[in-house]
Nucleic acid binder design. Sequence first.
DNA 1: CTGAAAGCGCTTACAG
DNA 2: CTGAAAGCGCTTACAG
Lengths: 344, 344
Amino acid sequence: MTRRRSVTRLVDVAAQAGVSIATASRSLTGTNGVSASVADHVRRTAEDLGYVVNLHARSLAGGTTSTIGLIVHEIGDEYFSEIASGVLRIATQQELTVQICHSGHDPEVELAQIRTMVANQIDGIIIAGSGFVDPKLQAMSKAELISFRRSGGRVAVIGRHHLAADAVLPDNRAGGQSVAEHLLSLGHQRIAVASGPRGLTTVADRLAGIEAALRSRGRRLEDVPVIEAAFTRDGGKVAAAKILGEHGDVTAVIALNDAMAIGVLSIFRTRGIKVPGQVSVAGFGDIPVAEDLAPSLTTVRLPMAKMGELALTMALKPAASRPRRQTTGHSLMVRDSTGPVSTH
Amino acid sequence: MTRRRSVTRLVDVAAQAGVSIATASRSLTGTNGVSASVADHVRRTAEDLGYVVNLHARSLAGGTTSTIGLIVHEIGDEYFSEIASGVLRIATQQELTVQICHSGHDPEVELAQIRTMVANQIDGIIIAGSGFVDPKLQAMSKAELISFRRSGGRVAVIGRHHLAADAVLPDNRAGGQSVAEHLLSLGHQRIAVASGPRGLTTVADRLAGIEAALRSRGRRLEDVPVIEAAFTRDGGKVAAAKILGEHGDVTAVIALNDAMAIGVLSIFRTRGIKVPGQVSVAGFGDIPVAEDLAPSLTTVRLPMAKMGELALTMALKPAASRPRRQTTGHSLMVRDSTGPVSTH
DNA sequence: CTGAAAGCGCTTACAG
DNA sequence: CTGAAAGCGCTTACAG
């Protein structure tokens, strides 16, 4: 954009304080080897002059940036804004700058964003979106991240990726199992799943958990309608409409995230379907509003903000020889949207 | 952090392509004055080598960064994540990097964040939090922004601030008036307000709108209990409890944002208070989930994502001689949480 | 403890 | 159309 007019520079501070720029630099960065009185004087002078260091110059000269990049699918989605909130909490605390961008579930966009971040000499990258079941889709991103790591960059991902990076692993599989078992134990036999794209690892893992629960009762996932739609509220609406149309006999719906569950509840409300009287509905994630829905939503709680904190914390540690994994727990929040299967 | 090992630099590309770094630079930035064939060759070479420009060096040499800063109170709040989503939409489109940070309703934190951004040679700053009624609280921020603008930086704020910057002005006053009139016309005489801190301009403006509606019916704001609490869901709970305890006769509650309204609904549900049968509840903002609450929330719709888009769009335009203001509209979304005053 | 100087990786007048 | 060179504002060996 426009060329910036010159502002106060280190050389101005040094001149004003009557020292060399080397001493001025050391005083301001807190490098030792400067007498306390001189350092103090320089700092005061800088303050008086309203000096702020040019981070680009510092980065170029010193090789550090103190900034980390955060890639989310869509910040308007509460799942990601909670994660982002956790990341920002730690970042503020560590005086780190955070760059944020959308990937929109698109591997090509993700790759472009990673490249931009690398170009920005970012210190670390956190990828918070779901991975893809097909490793080919992220092969380019993977190559980019490997070279980034090789040059000293740090990477942490949230969720299962084929990116060979430190990872925070949400308890998707076990969570899926818990919620399915909950419904099965309430007597539900005809369960449908409002699912996001099965190409996403998040979706695949949650489905795998549901499958495990079914298996333990001698049933198979293949016998359960899994309706794929967008991993959003609108996707939930689409899935709900389809379930109503094609599988009118279901007594329970598991939505694979809370956004979809909200869409399902919305359609059911519109169509006058009683929840949980006629159909039980469960979600996944436990975004803050889940307990304020009516009926309040039974869902699998994942510690989103905590996951953001963990990811950044991992990224700040020196790289290990092999990728670290940190699993989160989950808890099934049983609320009002699920109940025993009605027997009439 | 750690010093980065050297990666492919422009000089490597130039050597490989057999041209000077000046020509290589021009080819890559698309500056004209390079023969098409040479430029093409350089670009291909760069691609082959996986070259990505060092933005810090570019910034230092050229004075541009292509990055903008976004300051929100808290990204976990849907109001701000919607705004951020709008900002990111435009930013992606314009190939701009976005730095994001929390201010947490704290003027000092805000000031520190602004300074960091200025130090980062950011091209533009967007402040999305509410302003403060007391101009003194942001005097330092204002000074910082003025000097930032003087040196070529661009600033846009969302909401009323004493910052003398381009502003997107949410329709807070008119919105407050609309929602109050809605309730008054439903026959409600005893209305309480679940309010955020009155020191925030957002709160003050919404209250002013409510006051205008009351005045037009010959009533005064002073006669209405305005319960101040945190501008969050928890604050809404606190306010609701207080209203129930101290003003048990109210028939309607206006919450000054949707987060507070959700808290109010939550308490009312717990206490078994029928909405809108016993008490009507209205919010402000229309976050996406508002229509999915039960009862669905009557609220003032503000185009949050659009506001984010507008703010960045303004910031990208060359500065005008005097601050521009762009007002948004609002619409009252009448849903199920408000109804006529019960007459028994 | 302090300073002169090299160098980080680019862009952009300036000259040809 | 192309290149040699200066310079952006810092940090950090290297000398003293």
